[in-house]
Amino acid sequence: MLERTRRKDRTEVTFVLPADAPPGPVSVVGDFNEWQPGVHTLTARKDGNRAVTIALPAASAQSFRYLGAGDHWFNDENADAQDGTNSRLHT
């Protein structure tokens, strides 16, 4: 799930996954972090989900994917679009 908070010059996007699906650590990688695993790792929230928030430029498009344990790559079914093997979001 993607949560967006629009600010004057940026959009804060929170990437949210259930606590146990998939099991183990998960990071979100994409254009915004040069596809570097581990830069944006999802952490536990009080509601039982895992999340990480990233500030992105307003009016931009970003490709991303999730990377789980065991080199498990997967997309976000709630993304704005799919671009080949990647999820896409528009801020």
Score class of each variant (00 low, 15 high):
26 V>E: 00
80 D>R: 01
33 N>R: 05
1 M>Q: 14
2 L>S: 03
29 V>K: 00
47 D>V: 08
21 A>G: 06
29 V>S: 01
19 A>E: 05
78 N>T: 14
24 G>T: 04
67 L>M: 10
25 P>M: 09
26 V>Q: 03
30 G>L: 05
34 E>P: 03
44 A>Q: 10
54 I>T: 03
50 R>K: 14
4 R>M: 05
45 R>C: 06
87 S>E: 04
91 T>W: 00
39 V>R: 06
23 P>L: 11
69 A>S: 12
32 F>D: 05
49 N>A: 11
73 W>K: 08
8 K>F: 10
22 P>S: 07
61 A>P: 03
10 R>Q: 11
2 L>M: 11
32 F>P: 00
43 T>C: 06
21 A>W: 10
48 G>A: 08
78 N>W: 06
85 T>D: 15
14 T>M: 04
9 D>E: 11
5 T>E: 15
18 P>E: 09
2 L>F: 03
59 A>C: 02
91 T>F: 01
37 P>K: 07
26 V>R: 00
40 H>M: 07
41 T>D: 09
88 R>I: 14
5 T>K: 08
11 T>N: 08
44 A>G: 03
45 R>L: 07
22 P>G: 07
11 T>W: 00
59 A>F: 04
22 P>M: 04
9 D>F: 02
67 L>H: 02
50 R>D: 01
3 E>L: 14
36 Q>L: 14
90 H>Q: 15
15 F>G: 01
73 W>D: 07
49 N>R: 13
18 P>V: 04
58 A>D: 05
89 L>Q: 02
84 G>N: 10
31 D>R: 03
23 P>N: 13
79 A>D: 06
13 V>Y: 00
40 H>F: 12
28 V>Y: 01
65 R>Y: 06
17 L>G: 09
66 Y>M: 08
31 D>G: 06
75 N>C: 12
32 F>R: 04
75 N>L: 12
2 L>E: 00
90 H>C: 11
59 A>D: 13
1 M>F: 10
8 K>S: 15
89 L>G: 01
45 R>A: 09
59 A>G: 08
90 H>K: 12
19 A>R: 13
8 K>R: 13
82 Q>H: 11
9 D>V: 04
23 P>G: 13
57 P>D: 14
5 T>H: 07
89 L>R: 00
80 D>N: 10
52 V>P: 03
18 P>F: 08
9 D>P: 02
